[in-house]
Design a protein around this nucleic acid. Sequence first.
DNA 1: CGTGGTTGCC
Length: 697
Amino acid sequence: MVVGLKMVDSIVVKVGSKIFSSVSNLLKHAAKSKNLRHATQIHSQIVTSNEASLGNINSLLWVYAKCGSIDSTLLLFATTPLASSNVVSWTTLISQLSHSDNPSRALTCFNRMRRTAAVCPNHFTFSAVLPACAHPPLLSHAQQIHALLLKHGFHSDTFIATTLVDTYANCASMALAQNVFDQMPHRNLVSWNSLIVGFLKNKLYFRAIGVLRALLQKTELFPDQVTFSSVLSACAGMVELGFGKQLHGSVVKRALVGFVYVKNSLVDMYCKCGVFQDAAKLFCDGGDRDVVTWNVIIMGCVHGLNFEQACNFFMDMIREGVEPDETSYSSLLQVSASLAVLAQGTLIHGRVLKTGRLENPCVLSSLVTMYGKCGSLSDAYRVFGEAKDRNVVCWTAMIAVFHQHGCGNEAIELFEEMLREGVVPEYITFVSVLSACSHTGKVDDGFRYFNSMANVHCIEPGLEHYSCMVDLLGRVGRLEEAWRFIESMPVKPDSSVWGALLGACGKHGNVEMGEEVAERLFKLEPDNPGNYVLLSNIYTRHGMLEEADEVRRLMGINGVRKEIGCSWIDVKNMTFVFNADDRSHSRTQEIHEMLQKLKELIKTRGYVSEIQFATNSVEGSEEQSLWCHSEKLALAFGLLVLPPGSPVRIKKNLRTCGDCHTVMKFASEIFQREIIVRDINRFHRFTNGSCSCRDYW
DNA sequence: CGTGGTTGCC
């Protein structure tokens, strides 16, 4: 805090209780406190007292850099001719620009320095400018600077060559990085670590481990905490528990577990490898923890679907006085989304706003997804629409939300808008877009987008995309084409691809193909009850009851059980859970009376029970078993206890059944209620007798 | 040179 500025012969300033008598001390203090106001005061004093020596100007440039004020730096530079002929001044400017939001200005400056000012770069200049090209689109600039530093003879400088390895790695050019590394006459541990980190950043985990092996075999160097936190991260990426445990041993032996970076990597490695107990043991070892340690363990819970435990850790974290950061909020939003608890999600949204964290792209995308998964399309779209910066993940999230809510056309329109805005789509974006095409029956558009993946966007389609295409063809009944499409795939079809085709066979009642596809699926995933149910339903619909029974027997032989249908509904602050055939609720009597009344009402309007959905029931009692489905029980309860006119929100653990879907449509009209059913993969919003999914799910 | 992170088909 500047208490007073007093001019004597030289500058004397009282800062707090300390007296500073030289410009250089003043500047040091300003740099340390990052006080921009203080710096500008010194600036004007330097100018008025004629102390604008090159040394002072360069120090001041450095202080402005510390304060992060690019405008001040540029102004000082422009108004001081002395600086424009000095390599230190230029280097300070370039370094600051390299680390700014728009690093390409550092390159412009670098070129101006050489061409216009004819100042020769030194090795500080090279290490300042290289980070400015550390992005894939700027690879050619990195190569130009590489050529230049070869000309200046700096390539054998260990520090510069290491910076170059890092730069090429950040340009996603590991071949070039490796080449520079191989030609280095001397390598220190930082050089080795840079190469490891490079492979790590480019997800070439196996190569990162390979570099560690070479480091151990070929050199006398000792890997340090940076080495270990990086290779552990590679193990986490590979889900390689065996080697990860070995590394843990080395970490203990070398007494590096006290470094919080190393510990965090270890905890994360155990979480990602699915051994949460080992992660928790390490987490609780009494050593240092920081916000990342907490985030890692919280994400570990989310990964293991232990949502309640994730919330408990989050509360412990706050109790221990650790301030949650963007990652913490993003994880908690994922919890709210997974549990579809809108109230909790909204609470976190408020907290995010209060702490000014909506700018963060991860938080933003998680928030959009949370509202989507909690059933509020309008809130998701509002958050998306009001966002300032939207990256491809955020767009992808919104596209997916539209799709989950049955708005396939809107999803596709949004994708087109995204392309018009110049946002580059990625792998997952196409999963949602192709699914949207499938659900809206847009076969030609689907193929156009599918082909554009490789041809326009350089994305190799994966199994997820192939499944979408099979679904796309299968849904509109082009089953033979779908089969041929599978045969033409360059990769081996997996259960998701065959599963899409079996679903289509079910929808279109193709017994022969269904049998053939189901046989493959029974081999690929004998434990998945869905395939048995689908085939059995195909048989039932064709009156092939013996064959249907045979499939049920096969299920028994293979020890596969159909998951019990379960629906739940929130009333005030209580959650009421209904299993199929549930008679445990105290108001069961009223619930069944309500259902009986509903059945009679809708029968007069043309409802015929769709008994093919009555699986697992004794012949003759199919209709009765249909009316004991969990979502119907939850609906009846909701109609009984919720105030008239308020929406009925039901969540279900499985796909909703066709008969229930029909009943919900009728009920929404008769009771003039909005009924929202979230099943395992989408939302059904019933209003006035129709569903948002347009009966296509 | 270093830990954690957002989005998905069915």
